[in-house]
Design a binder for these strands. Structure first.
Length: 649
RNA sequence: GCUGCUGUAGCUCACUGGCAGAGCACUCCCUUGGUAAGGGAGAGGUCGAGAGUUCGAUUCUCUCCAGCAGCACCA
C-alpha cells in the first residue's frame, strides 16, 4: 500500500493521494476537461511539470493556458526546443547548446559552420509550425549520467557533454522528448507541441554569442524569438518596438538637431547648439545641486604622465583602453608618454594630497565635471550612450570608515532628488559585493558591504544583488535606467575604495595626532552627461521638460502683417529668460505648426490679425491638438515660471 | 575585440557591369494664410576608402574604415 500524501488546492480544500502522484493524475482526478487543458502545476510555489511525481504533502495549483505566467514561460521554453529541433531537422550537422527563456521570449545558441541568414528565419519558422501542428507528445525521462554522456558523445554533441559534466552529481538528468527529438533540459514543459499557439510568436534576429559567455571560446550563432500568450499580445509587442524605435536618441538627435557623430572621431560627439543647450542646462543644474550638497568643485588636467597611471594601477590593468599621447620633448632622452585621463580619481587624490589634511576636513566631498577619454572596444560604442569621449559628473568623498554609511545614505538621497527632478521616479539599484580577486582584508570588506547595504535600506531601497560583481577595490551600488527598448544602462554609481588612497598615499591626521588612511567613495549621479542625455531623450521621447528643452517657444506669424508683433513677443519672452524664436517665414501656419511639432518645440505661439489687434497669442502646446487664446502678459508670466529649473522653484 | 548585416544627395530610401534616381529638406518665384505638408522652378553626388577582376566597376572579389544588432568588455 502506497504512502498517502495530502495535497492542498488553492481553494483551501485538501485531498489524499498516493505518494508519487503526478499533477496529471491529480488533474484527471478532478475533471477530465481539466486534465485536457492543464499545462503545468505550481507545487509548493515551484513550477512543476505535469509528469513529475509529488512525494510529500504540498500545495498544488493546476495551470492552464489562462494562467499567464506559467503559460508564457512554457510557451517560450517549448518554442526554444521546437526551434532547436527545426534547425537540426533542416541542417542536421548543426550542434545544439543551450536555449533559455528570457524577457519577452527565448533564444537558442547553435554551432553551425554556415551563418544563418535572415531568410533562414522564415524557413525555420515554417518548420517550427509543422512541428507544432504534429502535436507531438512531450515526454520526460530521467537518464543515468553514463547513458546520457554516451548518447551525446555518439551524436557528436560536445556542448551537451560539457553541460552534463557541469551538472552536480546528485541532480537528476532529465531528457525531454518532443516526438522523436530530444534535449537535455531541467523542464518543465507542455504536454504536447500542439499546445504552443501557432501565431503568438516570431523569430526576431540572429547574432553571435560566445559559448558560456566566455570570449576565449567558440562563437556560436544565436537566434532570438519573442512569444506571448496570444496573437494580440505579440502584435502589441511588435507595435511597442516600432514605437520605441521612434524614441531612439540617435534618431531624435538628428531630428531635433542636437548632435552628430562622424567617422573621423568614432565614439565622440559633435554637439550642435540645441544639444549643447540641454547639456549646459543640465550642467548648471548639477553644479547648483552639488554646491547645495556640500561639494567643492575642482578641475584637473586632461593629459597626465603615465607615471601617475602606473602608480594608481590603471596602466597595468587598462593600458589597452587608454588614449596614449607621446610627446618628443626637446633635449629629453626619451619620449614622454602620457595618457588622456580615463578617469578623474587619481587627479582628485593629488588635490587631496596637497597640504596636510585633518580629520576635521572629513568628509571631504570633491566634485568635477571631468572630461574623460577611454578607448572603448569598437563593438561597445552605441550612439551617445557609450562613447570614447565623455564628461562625468564625478565626485570623490574622502572619509573615514565610520563615515561610509552616513555618506552613502546622504548620497542616495542626493541622487534620488536629482533623478526625481529629471523625471525618473523609478530606477533600479544594484548592489555588487566582493569579487573573487580583490584587494583588502575580509574585515574591511565586511564593514564596507554592511555599510552600503544598511544605507541603501535606510533610504527605503532594497537593491538587487549582483554577487561577486564588485570592483577589485571595493563594493559598489549601481543606479540603472533603461532606454526606449528596455536595455539597462548604468548611470549613477557609488563605490567604496580602499585601494587607491593606499596606492597614492593619501592620508590625514586623526584626533590622535597620527596619520591615517582615508576611504574614498567614488560617485557619479548622471554617470556621464552623454549617456544621461541619451536616456533623457528616450525617456521623454524628445519632449523634454520645458526648462531643459533647447527650443522652448516659437512665435509664428500667420500673416506677414503680424511680423512686427511677433518680434515684439519674442523680445519680451527673451527678456524673462525664455528661449524664444520668431518664425516669420512666408509659410502657412499649418506648415509651421507641423515643422515645430516635429522639432519637439514645447510651445508654439501663433499670431494673426486678431492677436495683433487684441494683444494676445494663440497658444499651442506640444502633444495637444487644441489651442487657446491668452493675453500676452498672462503667457509671459506662465512661461517665466516654466523656464525655472526644478531646484530653483 | 568577436559573429552577422549595412554603407548611394543634408534625411529616408530605390535602381544599375555601360549618362546616377525619388520623396522630404535646401535656394528662388508665385501665394498672406487660422493650427501637423499651398503651387512652380532650380541647385545638390568621386555611389564609405583603397586594391583587384574587366574593354569598362557605384554594381563582382579582397582589405580597411564606419554604423547597426547581439555577445564579450565597461576602471
Amino acid at each position: 500500500m502506497a504512502q498517502q500524501i495530502s495535497l492542498t488546492f488553492p481553494d483551501g480544500n485538501s485531498r489524499q493521494y498516493n505518494e508519487g502522484v503526478t499533477p496529471a493524475d491529480v488533474a484527471a482526478s478532478i475533471a477530465s476537461s481539466l486534465a485536457k487543458k492543464a499545462i503545468s502545476a505550481t507545487v509548493d510555489g515551484e513550477h512543476w511539470d505535469m509528469a513529475w511525481p509529488i512525494k510529500t504533502d504540498s500545495t498544488i495549483a493546476i495551470n492552464t493556458m489562462k494562467d499567464e505566467a506559467p503559460a508564457v514561460e512554457l510557451i517560450r521554453h517549448d518554442l526554444a526546443h521546437i526551434m532547436a529541433r527545426a534547425v537540426q531537422e533542416i541542417w542536421p550537422s548543426t550542434q545544439v547548446t543551450i536555449g533559455p527563456v528570457i524577457k519577452d521570449g527565448w533564444y537558442y545558441d547553435f554551432d553551425r559552420k554556415e551563418p544563418f541568414t535572415p531568410d533562414d528565419l522564415g524557413t525555420i519558422e515554417k518548420k517550427m509550425k509543422e512541428i507544432i501542428n504534429k502535436r507531438d507528445e512531450v515526454r520526460t525521462e530521467v537518464w543515468d549520467r553514463d547513458v546520457a554522456l554516451k548518447y551525446y558523445e555518439d551524436r557528436c554533441e560536445p556542448y551537451k557533454v560539457e553541460l552534463i559534466n557541469g551538472i552536480p552529481g546528485d541532480e537528476p538528468l532529465r531528457m525531454y522528448w518532443h516526438g522523436d527529438w530530444q534535449d537535455l533540459c531541467r523542464g518543465p514543459h507542455l504536454q504536447n507541441t500542439g499546445q504552443v499557439p501557432g501565431d503568438s510568436w516570431k523569430l526576431m534576429s540572429i547574432a553571435g554569442a560566445y559559448w558560456r559567455g566566455d570570449s576565449n571560446r567558440t562563437m556560436l550563432q544565436r537566434i532570438y524569438g519573442v512569444a506571448f500568450q496570444n496573437k494580440e499580445q505579440l502584435k502589441a509587442h511588435l507595435h511597442m518596438l516600432e514605437e520605441a524605435a521612434k524614441r531612439d536618441h540617435r534618431k531624435l538627435g538628428r531630428e531635433m538637431d542636437l548632435f552628430h557623430m562622424q567617422e573621423e572621431a568614432p565614439g565622440q560627439i559633435f554637439w550642435h547648439p540645441n544639444g549643447w543647450l540641454i547639456y549646459t542646462q543640465l550642467q548648471d543644474y548639477m553644479r547648483r545641486k552639488q554646491r547645495g550638497g556640500g561639494y567643492v568643485e575642482v578641475n584637473t588636467p586632461q593629459v597626465v604622465d603615465r607615471k601617475l597611471w602606473e602608480q594608481s594601477g590603471h596602466w597595468e590593468k587598462y593600458q589597452e583602453h587608454m588614449f596614449i599621447v607621446e610627446v618628443d620633448e626637446e633635449h629629453a632622452r626619451e619620449k614622454s608618454i602620457n595618457a588622456l585621463k580615463p578617469m578623474n580619481c587619481p587627479c582628485h587624490v593629488q588635490i587631496f594630497n596637497q597640504g596636510l589634511k585633518s580629520y576635521r576636513d572629513l568628509p571631504l566631498r570633491m566634485a568635477e565635471f571631468g572630461s574623460c577619454n577611454r578607448y572603448e572596444p569598437s563593438g561597445a560604442l552605441h550612439g551617445i550612450m557609450r562613447v570614447r569621449g565623455f564628461t562625468q559628473d564625478d565626485g570623490h568623498i574622502f572619509c573615514t570608515e565610520d563615515q561610509i554609511e552616513e555618506e552613502t545614505l546622504t548620497y542616495i538621497e542626493f541622487l534620488t532628488s536629482i533623478y526625481r527632478d529629471l523625471g525618473f521616479e523609478n530606477f533600479k539599484v544594484k548592489f555588487s559585493d566582493r569579487p573573487n580577486t580583490r584587494s583588502g582584508s575580509d574585515e574591511v570588506w565586511d564593514k564596507a558591504e554592511t555599510a552600503l547595504l544598511a544605507a541603501t535600506r535606510k533610504a527605503g531601497i532594497e537593491p538587487e544583488l549582483n554577487p561577486g560583481e564588485g570592483a577589485f577595490y571595493g563594493p559598489k551600488l549601481e543606479f540603472v535606467l533603461t532606454d526606449a527598448i528596455g536595455r539597462d544602462w548604468q548611470c549613477g554609481t557609488h563605490q567604496v575604495d580602499f585601494v587607491l588612497p593606499e596606492r597614492l598615499e593619501a592620508n590625514y591626521i586623526g584626533s590622535d595626532g597620527e596619520k591615517h588612511r582615508p576611504v574614498m567613495l567614488h560617485r557619479a549621479t548622471l554617470g556621464s552627461f552623454e549617456r544621461f542625455i541619451g536616456i533623457l531623450i528616450e525617456e521623454h521621447a524628445g519632449k523634454l521638460p520645458f526648462w531643459l528643452a533647447p527650443r522652448q517657444v516659437v512665435v509664428a506669424s500667420i500673416i506677414s502683417d503680424a511680423d512686427d508683433y511677433v518680434r515684439e513677443v519674442v523680445a519680451l519672452l527673451k527678456a524673462v529668460g525664455v528661449r524664444a524664436e520668431a518664425d516669420i517665414r512666408n509659410e502657412k501656419i499649418n506648415y509651421k505648426v507641423r515643422e515645430h511639432s516635429l522639432g519637439k518645440v514645447p510651445v508654439i505661439l501663433a499670431c494673426g490679425a486678431r492677436e495683433v489687434e487684441e494683444h494676445t497669442v494663440s497658444v499651442r502646446r506640444l502633444g495637444e491638438k487644441q489651442t487657446s487664446v491668452t493675453t500676452l502678459t498672462a503667457i509671459i508670466d506662465s512661461l517665466k515660471t516654466s523656464v525655472t529649473p526644478p531646484d530653483l522653484l
